[in-house]
């Protein structure tokens, strides 16, 4: 591998970590249920990129593609479940505020 390509890979790792930080920060700080799911999705984008990057580095890009397609299918179904929960909570409380979720404590 040339030096140039190693820089590209380092750049991808840095951007990926920053996106995960952004997603997790959103997940912790926001009060809106859908915004939490958006934060999670942003972090998932970075993770998908890591898998492809791994395949690119070790020359197993075909295997990495197979992984990523599976990950994408799972990601969508998880998003559907999360949105379903959020909508049901909206039907109960009339808004999507995470501060409603305080029934369980102790």
């Amino acid at each position: 591998m040339s030096k140039m390509e190693a820089y590209v890979e380092t750049g991808m790792l840095v951007v990926g970590f920053l996106l995960i930080v952004a997603g997790c920060y959103c997940l912790i700080r926001t009060y809106h249920l859908l915004k939490i799911i958006i934060g999670v999705e942003v972090a998932m984008k970075a993770v998908t990129m890591f898998v492809i990057l791994a395949g690119f580095i070790n020359g197993k890009i075909a295997l990495a593609q197979a992984f990523v397609i599976t990950v994408i299918v799972i990601e969508v179904v998880v998003a559907v479940v999360a949105v379903g929960l959020a909508i049901n909570l909206y039907r109960i409380y009339g808004n999507m505020d995470i501060r409603n979720l305080r029934k369980l404590k102790g």
């Binding site: 492809i52 690119f56 890009i61 990495a64 990523v68 397609i69 994408i72």
Partner: peptide, 15 residues
């Protein structure tokens, strides 16, 4: 660009 065409198509259409 990294050579994974099929995964790219999936990402574009599904995600």
């Amino acid at each position: 660009l990294l050579g994974s065409v099929w995964a790219g198509i999936f990402e574009l259409s599904v995600c």
